[in-house]
């Protein structure tokens, strides 16, 4: 499988939301909420974005309180928590100072810099943490990306002051037929016929994880046969395992006729 990053419609909507922040009317509306079921490409998209922009990435922990959160954030900013003289106020000031210099550096280089909080569901009902995140993003007007699954959006409704700062919400949706075709074309090292792309789209239910499993199996099969002009077809792969069903774990095989 080719080691390339394929921009799906989910990725494009995420990048679109990040561009929309540059043109926002209300300067404090600098939060983006990213959610969606597991296996739809959130981690892949975020991993690529964070690596390319040098942004700060934090994974929320269940037991986070204010001090733990600030300590983790200072670690990500390469600052020793213990090395800061003073108390809570001085540590917060140092966080702001460090973020400001990173944001300036990024702006001078013409790039985006942001703060990503993954697994935000775990803390999205904790007012102490959410208010701290809002405080940091308010002072810096820095893009802040809250990533979660199902509960994040609902929990944020409890904090209207945060909800109002996050008009940009990106829900990662199952891949469309075009996304599946783009993923197969971008990652698969053998040609794949349209009928097999349709079948992968149907049985994967648009989950990237399953689509990548299917690509690996198609590639494995395609390297062992003489391919026709259209590439690997459903008829070629009849009876072969394509992927495993995520609900019951049983293999999904390509039917004899489709």
């Amino acid at each position: 499988m080719k080691n390339t990053f394929v921009e799906t419609s989910n990725t494009k909507r995420f990048l679109g939301a990040m561009h929309a922040l540059d043109d926002r009317g209300a300067i404090e509306a600098c939060m983006v909420v990213v959610d969606g079921k597991p296996g739809l490409g959130k981690t892949t998209t975020l991993s690529r974005w964070v690596a390319q922009t040098g942004s700060i990435y934090m994974r929320a922990q269940k037991g986070w309180d204010y001090s733990w959160f600030i300590k983790d954030l200072l670690t990500e900013l390469s600052v020793s928590y213990e090395g800061i003289r003073g108390g809570r106020r001085e540590r917060f000031a140092r966080v702001i100072q460090e973020l400001q210099s990173r944001a300036e550096e990024a702006a001078l280089n013409g790039t985006t810099f942001g703060l990503v909080i993954d697994e935000c569901d775990l803390v999205s009902n904790r007012s102490e943490i959410m208010e701290a995140i809002r405080g940091i993003s308010d002072i810096q007007f820095m893009p802040t990306i809250l990533v979660g699954m199902g509960r994040l959006r609902d929990n944020l409704r409890r904090f209207p002051q945060i909800e109002s700062r996050a008009p940009n919400k990106v829900e990662f949706l199952p891949a469309s037929r075009e996304d599946v075709a783009a993923l197969i074309e971008g990652r698969c090292e053998v040609a794949v016929a349209d009928d097999l792309i349709d079948f992968v789209h149907k049985v994967s239910k648009g989950f990237n994880r399953e689509i990548l499993d299917a690509i690996a199996n198609i590639e494995k099969f395609g390297r062992r046969i003489d391919l026709g002009p259209k590439g690997v077809t459903v008829a070629d792969m009849a009876g072969q395992t394509l992927m495993n069903d995520r609900t019951h774990g049983k293999p999904i095989k390509v039917p004899g006729a489709f």
Binding site: N3, F5, T43, T44, S47, V50, Q52, Y57
Partner: peptide, 20 residues
């Protein structure tokens, strides 16, 4: 950075995240 985000990874995944 990509390794820290993913925690569990293959070389191919890291190359895809980090390449320009």
């Amino acid at each position: 950075t990509a390794m820290r985000v993913r925690r569990c990874f293959t070389i191919g995944e890291i190359v895809a995240d980090a390449s320009r």
